[in-house]
């Protein structure tokens, strides 16, 4: 699946887009754990990180549909 990174997270990882393998039955947290294993720089962001699946906020328990796009959303600061 495609994972989108933004702002400080993108800078820290050095990428705005990552590809991750997803197994049937995976939830957001499974994908997140795989990402952190591959990119330990994500670790400090975890306590405040939110997630979006196909442009809608999702929590860690949400199942990941095949072909979905996951976005890692650090605390927002628009306005």
């Amino acid at each position: 699946m495609t994972v989108l990174l933004f702002a400080g997270v993108a800078e820290r990882v050095g990428a705005r887009r990552l590809a991750v393998e997803v197994a049937p039955g995976d939830r957001v947290r499974d994908v997140r754990d795989r990402l952190v294993a591959a990119h330990p720089q994500l670790e400090p962001f975890l306590p405040t990180l939110r997630y979006a699946l196909d442009e809608e906020y999702a929590d860690e328990d949400t199942p990941v549909p095949a072909g979905a796009t996951l976005a890692l959303i650090p605390p927002v600061s628009g306005g």
């Binding site: 933004f6 702002a7 405040t48 976005a71 650090p74 927002v76 600061s77 628009g78 306005g79």
Partner: peptide, 24 residues
């Protein structure tokens, strides 16, 4: 908007920069 719209701002100073996290 400050709570939930996925937009982020980075402050740039003369001697550095930082992504602002959260609607302070």
């Amino acid at each position: 908007l400050k709570r939930r719209v996925p937009i982020w701002k980075k402050e740039v100073w003369s001697d550095g920069e930082e992504w602002i996290e959260g609607p302070e």
